[in-house]
């Protein structure tokens, strides 16, 4: 498990400290972002990847300050466009481990277009979506994941637009790795980072993250003791969809495209599988909590598809195998004539 190896420092002798930059972290005290940063700094040294190969790319928002605090290569770009910048980085050097740090406003509102297209292309970037259902940096407007009726600075009488569901969107955009965790479950978060690190192609991790100032408690149902036991379902590949405290285990059946809560030992309990090529099962799974079920945490879908940068590289390699480009040959191609 990650926490043990982190202490050992990994094969390259890197430690958590090697990933902490000298910049003062400026998130609000008690912000969920701290936990995500700390976990990232613990996991990266365990991956046996040299530090200079990591690139963190972000857009705009509270989460987007993340790269400044990582002692890796980092690019803090413009609002919503981080997946596009990261695409250029990854294609230019596929050997890099490229991470995108984004939030619900950045990724799903202004940057929705880049998010869906990087996922459908299967660019080998690892996207962490900090979802706190609010705009924090601009001080408290509702976001595309805010619930209908959310009272915020820009919606004092309640928002009148419906939220979108990031993982359903990711599946719709053909994302090859889709997962969810929370900012309060360190161990689980670490295991998700590790899985992302090893996935070729786009991975998207939604982190249910608490904004202590503008939307405190948005996810408490899924993160706080006494509540999360009934409301959270941990996914494991090949294992039945079960959840709940030891004395009251329940199962989820997704037969006939319906979400049904059943007894944990019922034969109807659906067995989780991450390699859902068609994506239909993962789609229903991504909406279990909307139908009165628990919120699934873990990997909803993980399928193998050649990544974009690999396919592009193959085309370049195939062209170069026929002979590398030569300027004189290029200029002399086509119809030429000698003028005397």
């Amino acid at each position: 498990m990650s926490t043990t190896t982190a202490k050992n420092g990994g094969g390259l002798g890197l430690t958590r400290k090697d990933f902490q930059s000298d910049q003062v972290v400026r998130w609000c005290p008690g912000c969920g972002d701290y936990a995500i940063l700390a976990q990232m700094q613990k996991v990266l040294p365990t991956l046996e990847i040299p530090r200079e190969k990591f690139v963190f790319v972000s857009g705009i928002g509270c989460a987007a300050r993340f790269p400044y605090y990582m002692d890796t290569f980092g690019f803090h770009t413009i609002h919503g466009r981080a997946p596009a910048f990261a695409t250029g980085v990854k294609v230019s050097n596929p050997d890099l481990s490229v991470w995108v740090i984004s939030g619900d406003g950045d990724a799903l509102s202004i940057g929705g277009n880049h998010l869906i297209h990087s996922m459908r292309r299967n660019v080998g970037v690892k996207i962490i979506l900090f979802n706190n259902r609010v705009y924090g940096l601009t001080k408290g407007q509702y976001s595309p994941t805010s619930l209908l009726g959310s009272r915020t600075k820009s919606t004092p009488t309640g928002s009148v637009d419906y939220p979108l569901h990031p993982l359903t969107l990711a599946l719709g955009a053909e994302c090859s790795f889709v997962a969810r965790t929370t900012d309060r479950d360190q161990k689980h978060m670490a295991s998700m980072f590790e899985e992302m690190a090893n996935h070729e192609g786009t991975s998207l991790l939604e982190v249910l993250q608490n904004c202590i100032v503008f939307n405190d408690g948005a996810w408490h149902k899924f993160t706080e003791k006494g509540m999360k036991e009934q409301n959270v379902m941990y996914l494991e590949d090949g294992q039945p969809l079960v959840y709940g405290p030891e004395d009251n285990r329940k199962g989820i059946s997704l037969d006939d495209y319906k979400v049904r809560v059943v007894e944990a030992d019922s034969p109807d309990v659906t067995v989780h599988r991450v390699d859902d090529e068609a994506g239909g099962y993962a789609h229903i799974l991504s909406r279990v909590e909307l139908e009165g079920g628990p919120v699934p945490l873990g990997v909803l879908r993980k399928v193998e598809r050649p990544p974009f940068e690999g396919l592009m590289g193959d085309q370049v390699a195939a062209a170069q195998a026929k002979g590398e480009g030569d300027i004189d040959t290029l200029l002399n191609s086509g119809d030429t004539w000698e003028h005397h």
């Binding site: 200079e52 190969k53 963190f56 290569f73 690019f75 980085v89 050097n93 890099l96």
Partner: peptide, 11 residues
């Protein structure tokens, strides 16, 4: 990126 010892952030 990829150059050891030159890790830095821009934005």
């Amino acid at each position: 990126p990829g150059t050891p010892g030159l890790e830095h952030r821009i934005g």
